[in-house]
């Protein structure tokens, strides 16, 4: 059965999350057709039968209204059982549009697929649901990092789309974009997240030690490391709320999550409990975070971080 995969681009390159969505689609379908949209997207994707390309200078930042129109056109030509797109902020928005457009059921932000059922965290990952969903089509939007990028090497045939899109589709548009610096990795995309909480004690402490550990880990491991925070640290104004982890912040599943001076309230746990390894540093042995952590140090962070950073520099 055929799957259409929306390939989201940034600066002409297909995003990692879209490669993962493609990997998932390949698991699901024996025929995979891509929809590649952007401002001059690069034609170097692998693992699909065909890729429809639509380029438009107005799509430097992806816009969901015109992209929905492009996907509609490809669907009209190709049909398909599944419409797959990565659950990035853009993909989540587009997924809703496609569900309305195709009168289709949708499953967004799921993390697994086993025996024909989908796995998704409900109630902020406090429980996990196994879901049956079917239709023609079904809109499926896997969470970034949940699936492996496609290893399939087949070279697709590229088909140019020549569509005249109505100006009204561009009515909602960006007027200014302050891109994050490449070092400011999003907590949801990181391999390692270093989070600090109220226990850091002050803005100066948070802003000195959390980035210092982050940088030391990035150097020592070569991995993508991001800094995160509990809501208490965010509310205190120590760090921007885009770094908040938890039920009303971001949900992260890194390889390693460091919780430093974080008690582990249920709302915080909701955002990080699916991390592969959790390491907690907290001076209170009764802190609930130790109920979740794989490794713990019952200590003041002041007695751990300086030495840890020093040792990491030697690695």
């Amino acid at each position: 059965m055929k799957a259409l995969v929306v390939l989201e681009t940034l600066k002409g390159k297909v995003r990692e999350a879209s490669h993962e969505a493609l990997g998932f689609a390949r698991e699901l379908s024996d025929e995979v057709v891509g929809v590649l949209v952007g401002k001059e997207p690069e034609r170097d994707v692998r693992g699909l039968e065909r890729v429809y390309v639509f380029s438009d200078p107005r799509l430097d930042i992806p816009l969901s209204a015109p992209v929905a129109k492009v996907v509609e056109e490809v669907f009209r030509r190709e049909g398909g059982k599944y419409v797959v797109l990565a659950a990035t902020p853009f993909g989540k928005e587009l997924g809703g549009r496609l569900a309305a457009l195709f009168n289709a059921p949708i499953l967004d932000d799921f993390t697994g697929y086993e025996d024909g059922l989908f796995v998704k965290g409900f109630y902020s990952n406090k429980v996990f649901a196994k879901i049956r969903i079917d239709g023609s089509p079904v809109i499926l939007s896997p969470r970034p990092r949940a699936f492996k990028p496609s290893q399939d090497t087949r070279e697709p045939e590229y088909v140019d789309l020549d569509l005249a899109l109505d100006e009204s589709l561009f009515a909602a548009h960006p007027v200014e974009v302050k891109e994050k610096s490449p070092e400011d990795i999003d907590v949801t995309e990181a391999d390692i997240v270093v989070s600090g909480g109220r226990g850091m004690g002050s803005a100066e402490n948070y802003q000195k030690w959390i980035p210092a550990l982050k940088d030391a880990l990035a150097k020592a491991t070569g991995m993508k490391v991001a800094y995160g925070a509990s809501r208490a640290a965010v509310d205190a104004g120590w760090v921007d709320h885009s770094h908040q982890v938890g039920q009303t912040g971001k949900t992260v599943s890194p390889l390693v999550y460091f919780a430093i001076g974080i008690s582990g309230a249920i709302q915080h746990q909701a955002g990080m409990r699916t991390s592969k390894t959790i390491i907690a540093i907290n001076k209170d042995p009764e802190a609930p975070i130790f109920g979740l952590a794989d490794y713990g140090m019952v200590s003041k962070w002041e007695d751990v971080l300086p030495g840890l950073i020093e040792k990491l520099k030697g690695e």
Binding site: F122, G135, G291, M297
Partner: peptide, 26 residues
Amino acid sequence: YTYEVVEFNPPPPRKGVKLLESVDDL
């Protein structure tokens, strides 16, 4: 639509905390 939760499960259990004594341990 065909859409239902077939079953809810608790989060996979974690293996329990191992306490570390020193930075060298970590």
